[in-house]
Design a protein around this nucleic acid. Structure first.
Lengths: 224, 224
DNA sequence: TATTCTACTGAACATTTGCGAAGAAAAACA
DNA sequence: TGTTTTTCTTCGCAAATGTTCAGTAGAATA
């Protein structure tokens, strides 16, 4: 199968528990030069009111970048000076816990923004790693360009604010899931709300994202 | 003991598990007319660069409000059109879960901002209740005034953005606690990082905040 | 293809946590 | 103060989840 495959995110009628590498490759879209930033453009337009000229300028600050599977967007210990918009593929944000295991904080999907929030805002070295778990296309903006944009076109501050607010709302829901639901219920929630994750993400990563051991997740799957 | 007691937040040398009502009253500061918004002023100045004139104007949009214990700042089902800054006291944010029990989402402490994020940003009726669990003094800004402020003084957008970013970082840490730590470890974390909560908040609320049953929290305390 | 390595599954057992009920302590109220 | 109500504690058992270890399947590599 060629490196570039035309396709869109598409769920099989029946969810496969262990998708093969071939299946996963199908999830990736090609890099379409003509409309390379149309999804980013649309996402911004849906969030704030901005003139076409300003929008064009804003978009010009984003640079396309292609990550191969297992490539890093950010490694632990390095400062995070970028924000990425995901065009296609998937990133995984994780950090080592006390026992030296990897804890999966979250997964970033197409049309979402991702960065190491704490490192980006404080300027401290990142305590987390951001890695592509699929071939992934992103648009990257540098921190200095973003800050310059905020000053030059203040209305774009609204975009940053709404992005952060949106993230806070998502996290609140995730906390709610831990407060009120068992491991089994959390898995079933994921199954109905993010089937793409169940399909795509290796079991061990899913388990650490759900806050349970891989063995227990394997056991839960068996009982469904 | 009179209703207004002069005092500051102060921890006893030895933490009491079950503080009496008298103890709790000591935690409350008086309403100091002269410097009524000095903590809010300082918090804003620490966050963004803003001229004194603009800061004075921004502060003029906040109105002081005193809540008695058990008073509501926001009731479930109502739209949240305000943001509050806590001068003293404590608010509890909670919502009913599937079983009809109350789930405590978080506690808001002095010098923090609080609102129902999802209701405030979307305009939908709130799915959570915000209630004072101590006599509490707050400064309130209306949504329309905040939006007007954002337009009139764009640099204040930065304040809203940083507040949301900060909240997201706090929530990320809370999620991390659920992913990596047992109920016992979560309680001990609270004990060392937020002893004021252990001291002040009724056990049942603490339990729902930690995501465990009251009986289990009682059991954990016994074993320390 | 054969080999090696890694990830997943499965089972037995240990630990943690939930749940129900009863008693004790504290708070609210008259 | 005495009474009532609420909250907290304690205990026993059941369910959920972690841990260890062994086996199996899948993927990567030569």
């Amino acid at each position: 199968m060629p490196d570039k495959v035309r396709g869109i995110y598409k769920l099989s009628a029946t969810l496969k528990r262990n998708p093969t590498t071939k299946d996963k490759t199908k999830l990736i879209t090609t890099f379409d030069k003509k409309n390379m930033n149309s999804s980013l453009r649309q996402t911004i337009k849906n969030t704030i009111s901005i003139s076409e000229a300003n929008l064009d300028y804003m978009l010009s600050l984003f640079k396309p970048l292609t990550l191969k599977k297992d490539d890093y967007f950010l490694e632990i210990g390095k400062r995070c000076n970028q924000v990425a918009f995901i065009k296609s593929g998937m990133l995984r944000i994780y950090y080592p816990n006390d026992k030296g295991e990897e804890t999966t904080c979250y997964f970033s999907l197409p049309n979402e923004f991702v960065t190491s929030f704490s490192s980006f805002t404080t300027g401290n070295p990142s305590i987390e790693t951001i890695q592509a778990i699929l071939p992934t296309e992103i648009f990257v903006i540098e921190k200095q360009d973003l800050e310059m944009l905020y000053k030059k076109i203040p209305v774009t501050q609204e975009f940053g604010r709404k992005a952060a607010e949106n993230l806070a709302i998502i996290m609140e829901k995730r906390i709610s899931l831990f407060l009120n639901n068992s491991a089994d219920e959390r898995y079933q929630f994921l199954l109905s709300h993010n089937p793409i994750l169940i399909q795509t993400v290796p079991l061990q990563y899913l388990a650490s994202y759900l806050g349970i051991s891989p063995q227990h997740l394997s056991r839960l799957r068996k009982n469904i």
